[in-house]
């Protein structure tokens, strides 16, 4: 619908540009101030019609990154510097320069598939109300039109419109997760953020949910930012992936390249540690734990756990530099061997 009004040059522009974004949790309790650098100097662009996977361990700052991108931040989280710019159908939107404009764009242009489906759907109200609450005011339709639009949308996603009359507890976890996807896509947004939508699901259901997200994305031509720590999910769904470690983007590139030729030792580890069916050779686990972001290691934040670390890594932070197919932040990029 919107695509028709966009003229050719703007179509090729990326839908999201994030520049040197820094977002810190700044706390001041009993005179002791603490700063947690959850997003530290992230620059990335997301193109139209692509699935961009963000991978990283818990507490690596990946959830904070997408919250900051969506402009959904509350103190003590603050954006210290940098910018987040969306381009919806030719109209520019700077999230932190004009926060009010962002409000109008939410759900209509930018929506969110959340992890805990039970937290999205109100347990004491029918599912229909969730659609009314989230989407109705953004669509500008009459109640009858809205209703038929929602029902048509559910049918296209392979869901029975009768689920609208059920309460969340009557539905299975997989069905609820599919409903949150329907909810996030009913306005046909150009930009969808999916935060670990498959983590709590059984393997069979997980595949169905992934297939559904891919279907919707292809039909709408939207951009999806897909966040999960599970690299096999990225392998299945992402066009490009960005690896986040301790609040920094350490590697980015097309999924096939990142899996075939990881440049950063952390990426290589994430991939080689995955168990494979039919293979029982011993897989190495990465020692140590993700760093504490209020007191991160000096230099490259990965150096205490890195098998390739040299003295330079301990003092100098490697910049994110462009390579043939992507970007990588490592002094010894490309030297890692894939098991």
């Amino acid at each position: 619908m919107l695509a028709a009004t966009i003229d050719a040059p703007t179509r090729t522009r990326p839908v999201l540009e994030v520049e040197n974004l820094k977002a810190y949790y700044q706390m001041n309790y009993f005179g002791v101030s603490r700063e947690v650098r959850a997003v530290d100097d992230v620059t990335l662009t997301i193109n139209r019609n692509e699935i961009y996977g963000i991978a990283g361990e818990s507490s690596s700052g990946k959830s904070t990154l997408i919250k900051t991108i969506a402009g959904a931040i509350t103190p003590p989280l603050r954006v210290v510097s940098g910018s987040v710019k969306f381009d919806f159908g030719g109209s520019q939107l700077d999230v932190y320069a004009r926060p009010k404009a962002m409000k109008a764009a939410r759900w209509r242009h930018l929506s969110y598939i959340m992890q805990g489906s039970m937290n999205v759907l109100n347990p004491v109200r029918k599912v229909r109300h969730a659609f009314d609450d989230f989407a109705f005011r953004h669509m500008g339709l009459s109640p009858a039109q809205f209703r038929s639009r929602v029902e048509g949308h559910l049918k296209r996603l392979g869901l029975d419109p009768r689920v609208l009359e059920s309460y969340p507890h009557q539905l299975s976890g997989g069905m609820r997760q599919r409903l949150t996807i329907a909810l996030a896509t009913v306005c046909e947004p150009e930009f969808i953020i999916a935060d670990e939508p498959t983590t709590a699901l059984d393997v069979l259901v997980q595949q169905d949910v992934l297939a559904l997200i891919k279907d919707v994305q292809q039909r709408l031509g939207s951009s999806v930012v897909f966040v999960t720590h599970d690299m096999t999910v990225h392998a299945a769904i992402a066009d490009r992936i960005g690896i986040v470690y301790a609040g920094r983007l350490v590697e980015e590139g097309p999924t096939d390249d990142a899996f075939a030729r990881p440049q950063h030792p952390y990426t290589a580890h994430l991939i080689s540690s995955l168990p494979r069916l039919g293979d029982v050779s011993r897989r190495k686990a990465l020692p140590g734990k993700p760093p504490n972001l209020s007191d991160p290691p000096s230099g490259c934040r990965f150096h205490p756990r890195c098998p390739l670390a040299i003295d330079r890594c301990k003092v100098e932070n490697p910049p994110l530099v462009s390579r043939a197919t992507g970007r990588v932040a490592c002094w010894r990029a490309g030297e890692v061997e894939v098991a």
Binding site: V203, Q207, T232, A235, A236, F259, L274, L277
Partner: peptide, 8 residues
Amino acid sequence: AVLPPDPT
């Protein structure tokens, strides 16, 4: 349903 760790 086990996704293999290989994009293709």
